[in-house]
């Protein structure tokens, strides 16, 4: 099937088997291998990308469902130099093996927007925002991204530092 969409601000077209997931389209067809496949079942978050600004598990979505969508992957978070969030991950050692990292970065980017837009989470005291990026909110909202290296302290420190500057997302 034919598919036209935007990936990292660039228009792309693919003639693609309808069984191909968005993740595999990015990795194997567009060679954007930053997004990782940790489970292929929506259980780990390594494949998280932004679709029209929202974070999703790209392994759970078929590529052909994304006609006209705007996709941003980890490769699109930076323009040449690492973004402030990416730099903060390096500074705070928010990764070890680095395999969950692209997903953490895309997820954090989407998460910060969600909280800014007043989306509640399981950790929120009520359903009416606004919400602050407390540790409980951050941890809850980032718990769909597993890190077996267990870099949560560094991930959280990097996100908080970046959110504090206000201009990184």
């Amino acid at each position: 099937m034919n598919l036209s969409f935007t990936v990292n601000r660039r228009a792309r077209t693919l003639d693609i088997d309808p069984r191909v997931s968005l993740l595999d389209a990015l990795r194997d067809h567009l060679h954007l291998t930053g997004s990782k496949k940790g489970c292929d079942h929506g259980q780990c978050g390594a494949c998280t990308v932004l679709v029209n600004g929202r974070r999703i598990n790209s392994c759970l979505s078929l590529a052909v469902m994304h006609e006209g969508d705007e996709i941003v992957t980890v490769e699109g978070l930076s323009d040449g130099a690492p973004s402030p969030l990416q730099a903060a991950f390096v500074k705070h050692d928010g990764f070890q093996c680095g395999f969950c990292t692209p997903g953490q970065l895309c997820s954090a980017t989407g998460m910060l927007d969600e909280i800014a837009e007043g989306w509640p989470s399981h950790a929120s005291a009520d359903l009416d925002g606004p919400y602050e990026l407390t540790q409980a909110e951050l941890s809850e909202r980032m718990s769909g991204n597993l890190c077996r290296c267990s870099c949560y302290p560094g991930i959280n420190a990097a996100i908080r530092e970046t959110a504090g500057t206000g201009d990184a997302t």
Partner: peptide
């Protein structure tokens, strides 16, 4: 800081299944 850090946070580090 890890010298491999920037490669890992930008998605440029090549893992086993990445380079086909």
């Amino acid at each position: 800081d890890r010298p491999d850090g920037v490669l890992k946070v930008t998605g440029a580090a090549v893992y086993a299944a990445d380079d086909v």
